[in-house]
Design a protein around this nucleic acid. Structure first.
Lengths: 336, 336
DNA sequence: TTTGTTGCTGGAAACGTTTCCAGTTTCCTT
DNA sequence: AAGGAAACTGGAAACGTTTCCAGCAACAAA
């Protein structure tokens, strides 16, 4: 069943059928009606490959996810997917491991699948303009903002929180509760990553309150995984380092740290307060309930698609959209 | 840059280039060499739309996920995705809400995206042959097995655990610890679903040990969400119902229940033991660590793809693959 | 020598759309 | 009444592949 069959059956030309399908204005109500009826009757669906071929593009948008095992991304992926679907795009998702390069992956997908655009979810955030130049379709960074060249280059789009400021906000909550020995649980990074920015927020909060930054209080782990955070915290505690509070840059990591603290006989929040950033579902169900700065995940996904859609359409300019968190008070910090 | 350009530059015919690209045997080593060099030099990638068009098929496999917010699926999705990628397929994922019909969704994707096959992840498990007949490409059920007509019809493929037997195994663990008032936390279902099968396993375990099944000990909630499980358990407790153990059909639900128990002042495992099925990462980090029957998620994803791949290739027959869980002892059950 | 086989090659028709262009009708303006 | 714009329509070329078919050379078997 092709467009030709539809044309034959409804007694019009192929081009007219095409116009009906694509909602072109230049077709009489009568023809439109007639064709639509036939289309419905045979529930005809146009062949996408042929459309893509002649339009020299597809309706596919790539979603490149780094570290989707982090449940923080699950909600975002979901909202991106439904937003794309609503806008008539097809989502092609690719998860990449720590050894892969997302730009290379994106570039190959872009050509291979003839992508219209790309959304990067949870990426490296230190892409140089040269690196990005290999991409010829619009892209949007979601959950992070590119900070190559210390933010001077703003020729890209993103949706994220203000990492440094939000981290500062979190640490200020701890300081407000009288904490001075505050550990920071961050993921290893020599680049300008989310981790680095949140670390800077941590440093800023301490400095602003006259607390000296003690490098031994920095707990570094390889990834955002619970396991890594657990092990790094455990190791730090085994070294005899002590603190009265922990700021974790992600809920996932906070949950890992909590287990390490528990196993070391350190009570949360009795002996040690804990705060983090993200607001994943499970953080509301564990004991003690995690105090966290929740990110508006649905909104972030939706806005990423909106932005990408505008870039694809040619309308709209690059912009770095910043969304804000809200503090969800759990019970992992001691009372003021 | 098209196949024609490559042909022109390397001084051969278009068809020869095509044969080189597709590894056809009928091409001399010399020509092959020459063409490959040109392809590499211009790093040419064939246009997928055109290939799909002429071959009247694509390389896309659909993944239809019901309830991906359940983190149990995250690992499976990941393994499905990498397995598909390795096998040269493109994954097109669609998440559906509780009001959508996955078959309808699959059918429209199948035609729209020209899918080669479909993997259903976490579905309804009571599809009738008539319903399934609208699909014209092979499909595999992952994490569940179709139980329409009480398992008589085996004309489909699946990868799952033996729900009833595994549930029985879980409940037996509780019985072995001397529990008699055992609640079951299941999701609402009037169909032959995972929930129903696991419920039957629960019933069987009780009956086999001479324990009467008390319907008031069944906690029903709408979905597999933590929130629903939390609220359903809370409600049950508020009604004054008491029990010394809970069997939850999913980790997610167990975590929700744990919070309800905690808030009611019921200690786990002191006053109430808890066991569930799944083995999601976070269940290992909460306090008390959840005792659970872990499903081999990586394996399940990989096997689903393997199976689908064989069905697509025309080799291999339908089969219902059953994988087994292993007990991960946490601390949510009292000691023997 | 003929005949057949094998190995390779090029030409060209398809695949199912979109879109440009030219044409026809209708209807409005002068 | 003539002219032209506007509304609609059909024909056909194009998109970039794959694949069928025919052809050619070389070489073996009769």
């Amino acid at each position: 069943m092709t467009i030709k069959d539809i044309a034959r059956i409804s007694g019009v030309a192929v081009s007219t059928v095409s116009r009906v399908i694509n909602n072109h204005p230049d077709v009489s109500a009568e023809s439109r009606e007639k064709v639509m009826a036939v289309i419905r009757e045979h529930n005809f669906i146009p062949n996408n490959s042929a459309r893509d071929l002649v339009r020299t593009k597809s309706d596919a948008v790539g979603l490149i996810v780094r570290g989707s095992q982090n449940t923080f991304f699950v909600d975002i992926i979901h909202s991106i997917e439904s937003a794309l679907d609503e806008a008539g795009y097809t989502m092609v998702m690719r998860q990449i491991g720590s050894n892969d390069n997302e730009i290379t992956c994106a570039a190959s997908m872009e050509r291979d699948k003839r992508l219209l655009g790309i959304i990067f979810l949870g990426g490296r955030s230190d892409y140089s303009p040269d690196e990005l130049a290999v991409l010829s379709v619009p892209y949007v960074f979601c959950t992070f903002t590119n900070s190559y060249g210390t933010l001077k280059n703003t020729n890209y789009s993103s949706v994220s929180i203000a990492d440094e400021a939000e981290a500062e906000k979190a640490v200020n909550e701890l300081i407000a509760r009288g904490h001075k020995q505050i550990a920071a649980l961050i993921s290893a990074s020599d680049d300008h990553s989310i981790s680095q920015l949140r670390y800077l927020g941590y440093v800023k909060a301490l400095k602003d309150h006259g607390i000296t930054v003690d490098d031994s209080l920095i707990i570094r782990c390889g990834t955002f995984n619970m396991k890594d955070a657990y092990e790094a915290t455990k190791k730090k505690l085994a070294e005899g380092v002590r603190f009265t509070a922990v700021f974790a840059i992600a809920d996932n990591m906070a949950i890992g740290a909590m287990r390490a603290l528990r196993e070391a006989g350190i009570d949360v929040p009795g002996d040690c307060s804990l705060i983090s950033i993200d607001g994943i579902e499970v953080s509301e169900y564990i004991d003690p309930m995690l105090s966290t700065l929740t990110q508006p995940m649905k909104e972030m996904g939706r806005k990423s698609v909106e932005q990408l859609s505008e870039l694809i359409g040619g309308t709209g300019r690059h912009s770095q959209i910043t969304v804000t968190t809200s503090l969800r008070e759990g019970a992992s910090m001691r009372q003021i």
